Simulated assay, not measured.
Amino acid sequence: MATFENTLTIERPIAAVFTYLAEFENIPRWNYAITETRKTSAGPVGVGTTYLQTRSIPRPAVEAFEVTEFQPTQRLRIRGQLGPFPAVVSYDLESAANGTRLRNTVELGLPGPLRLTGPVVTARIKSAVRANLDVLRQLLEA
């Protein structure tokens, strides 16, 4: 298991940031590797809600994920696939003087031979996630 974290401040109210993140169909707008995200379960978003998303990078794939924590304006957590990796992704939000502090934590399972290249792979993914989060920040601040 490899874990990394990115933290940034978004100059928007915490409720607006949470609402945007909780609409997982928004992911393709700020994550360059995802071309589509769609809900596959009925009802409002909450614990147990499931999604399928289409990934274009590093190779085309369809991935499933499930919401495992849903605490409005505080925390979102999902479990599923990030490319070839089983992953848990958390978004923790707190009010900051000029908006919202967003901490994104990613826990990657490193199966088989990927364990040997874990540090290199993790560093690359962390950098890509950071770039995506910066796009998210720009979208929300526009």
Rank of each mutant, 00 (worst) to 15 (best):
M1T: 10
M1S: 15
T3W: 03
F4L: 12
F4K: 07
F4D: 03
N6E: 14
T7N: 12
T9N: 09
I10E: 01
I10S: 04
E11I: 06
E11M: 14
P13T: 13
I14Q: 13
I14W: 01
A16N: 13
V17P: 04
T19S: 14
T19N: 14
Y20E: 10
L21I: 12
F24V: 08
F24P: 06
E25V: 05
P28V: 07
R29F: 00
N31Q: 15
E36L: 14
R38E: 10
K39Q: 12
K39M: 04
P44E: 10
V45P: 01
V47T: 13
V47G: 10
V47C: 08
G48N: 13
T50P: 03
T50I: 03
T50Q: 14
L52H: 10
L52R: 15
R55F: 00
R55D: 00
I57S: 10
I57D: 06
R59W: 08
R59A: 14
P60C: 08
E63G: 12
A64M: 12
A64K: 14
F65Q: 06
E66W: 09
T68C: 06
T68Y: 01
E69V: 15
F70I: 07
Q74D: 06
R75L: 11
L76H: 10
I78N: 06
G80Y: 03
Q81H: 12
P84H: 05
V89R: 09
Y91T: 05
D92P: 11
A97R: 12
N98I: 07
L102E: 05
N104K: 07
N104P: 02
T105D: 04
T105M: 12
T105Y: 01
V106H: 00
L108S: 08
G109Y: 00
G109E: 11
G109F: 00
L110K: 12
P111H: 00
G112F: 00
G112Q: 05
P113N: 09
L114E: 01
L114A: 04
L114N: 01
R115E: 02
L116Q: 10
G118L: 03
P119M: 09
V121N: 03
R124A: 13
V129K: 03
V129M: 11
R130W: 01
R130E: 13
N132T: 05
N132I: 01
N132E: 11
L133N: 13
L133I: 05
L136Q: 11
L136T: 08
Q138W: 01
Q138L: 09
A142L: 06
A142W: 00
